[in-house]
Amino acid sequence: MTIFTKATARLAVVAAAASVALGLFSTGAAHADTFIPLPGGEITETLPDGTSVTIRLRDESVNISPSMGATPLHRNVWASGRAEVQVHGAHKGVKLYPGYVVGCQVDISGGNANGGANGAVNSQGKGSGGVTSGGNLTLGPGQASTFWLLDVEGPDAYGERGSVPAIKFRGQEGSVTWADSTLGLAGCAGYAQARAFVAVEVSTEFGRSELRLWGQPFSLG
Rank of each mutant, 00 (worst) to 15 (best):
N63D: 09
V53F: 09
Q86C: 01
S163P: 00
L211Y: 03
A7R: 00
G184D: 11
G116D: 07
L149Q: 06
S26F: 10
T44G: 06
Q143L: 07
H31E: 13
V53Q: 08
G99Y: 08
F147N: 02
F35Y: 11
V198M: 07
F218V: 04
L47K: 03
V121T: 14
G184K: 12
V87G: 12
N76F: 15
A32S: 15
L96Y: 08
D156T: 01
A83G: 09
V13T: 10
F218L: 01
T46S: 01
T204P: 04
A189G: 12
T146I: 11
G154E: 01
A17V: 10
A12S: 10
E84F: 07
G129P: 05
T146N: 09
L57Y: 04
G99D: 07
A83Y: 02
I43E: 06
S175I: 01
G89A: 10
T138L: 11
C104K: 06
G50E: 10
P155Q: 06
G119K: 08
P48V: 11
R75T: 11
E153T: 10
V62C: 08
G171P: 03
S209T: 03
E84Y: 08
D180T: 00
G142H: 02
S52M: 15
G140H: 04
A7L: 00
A83I: 05
L183V: 06
G111A: 08
N114K: 13
V106E: 13
A157E: 14
G81W: 02
K6W: 08
F169D: 06
R75W: 06
A194M: 15
